[in-house]
Design a protein around this nucleic acid. Structure first.
Length: 288
DNA sequence: CTTGGGTCCTGTGCGC
DNA sequence: TGCGCACAGGACCCAA
């Protein structure tokens, strides 16, 4: 579900409600998501102040004044929704998330000191949460092996060429590998490869330096545009206020099987094929 | 070390 | 309407 743009959108939505604010009460309504939650997580979070809300790849990191960091991953279907303080909700409109009784998949609830309620909802439960010492967060199992941020300075042509050198796996699979670059998922890899004119089937180690150098800014461009659009909403994903993202309207290949290629002058048809168990969408005409 | 396949879990949409 | 199957923004784990 959420790739980097969706996670960044969620982080931005949470900023005004969480950063610098205190959690009055936190409750885990089940003992596990993908993995067991820390047994005393609710207790350790209750009363803590969030000093910073960061993002690393597809993870949200909430630093607490007690020297701990809450690590959150949304998995495929995870959502974080904010309900404003009771009393404020009415003037914001009826569509807004409310403090109604928790639903079946509302797994973790944060009641903030100002009365707003933050709910982590995840039907498929591929999401995860852990609470660790802030000094240890980057060494956490979930974060330790992540590659560079695609929007950061250490992701550049030379890095990519060196990392992909000799690799026989398809470029599609390589870009989905979070050790290569951390934050891309199925949608944005398909979209970036289309924009770069690179076939998803091509062996990662067999792409010319000039085409790799074109790929780097294209990846950044797609991610920036998607963040600007509030992410892509296909089914589960929502912004923290419940609104849809709208980058899905800008997809050029994802989900467009059998439809005409949108590249001006190209008469190709978008194909879907399965790579490493995931759907890849691409135009065989203009992606080489 | 690299690579591919299976697996976790629930919901939805489609063809019959 | 009901049923079964395919498929879904992720990523771990294990075998080859």
């Amino acid at each position: 579900m959420p790739e980097l743009p969706e996670v960044e959108t969620v982080r931005r939505g949470l900023l005004p409600v969480m950063e610098g604010r205190r959690i009055a009460q936190a409750e885990a309504r089940r003992p596990d998501l993908r993995w067991p939650l820390p047994k005393d997580m609710g207790q350790r979070l209750s009363g803590a102040q969030v000093t910073a809300l960061r993002r690393r790849s597809k993870y949200i990191l909430a630093d607490l004044d007690r020297g701990e960091t809450l690590i959150i991953h949304l998995g495929m279907s995870g959502r974080i929704l904010i309900a404003p303080p009771i009393g404020d909700a009415a003037q914001l409109g009826s569509f807004h998330h409310t403090h109604a009784a928790p639903g079946r998949h509302d797994h973790v609830i944060f009641d903030m000191e100002d009365g707003s309620r933050i709910t982590f909802n995840d039907a498929r439960r591929f999401g995860a949460m852990d609470l660790v010492a802030t000094s240890e967060a980057e060494r956490h199992k979930m974060l330790a092996h992540l590659g560079p941020e695609p929007l950061g300075n250490s992701f550049h042509e030379d890095y990519l060429a060196k990392t992909l050198s000799g690799r026989m796996t398809p470029i599609k699979s390589a870009l989905l590998d979070q050790r290569v670059v951390a934050g891309l998922g199925n949608i944005y890899v398909c979209e970036a490869l289309f924009r770069a004119g690179i076939s998803p089937i091509r062996k990662a180690g067999r792409i010319s330096a000039s085409r790799l150098s074109a790929l780097v800014p294209v990846i950044r461009e797609v991610l920036h545009e998607a963040i600007e659009a509030g992410g892509s909403s296909l089914r589960d994903y929502r912004q923290t206020d419940g609104d849809l993202g709208y980058f899905q309207h800008s997809f050029q290949v994802y989900g467009r099987e059998d439809q005409p290629c949108l590249n001006p002058g190209c008469s190709g048809t978008i194909q879907r094929k399965i790579q490493a168990g995931r759907s890849t969408f691409y135009c065989p005409q203009c992606q080489r």
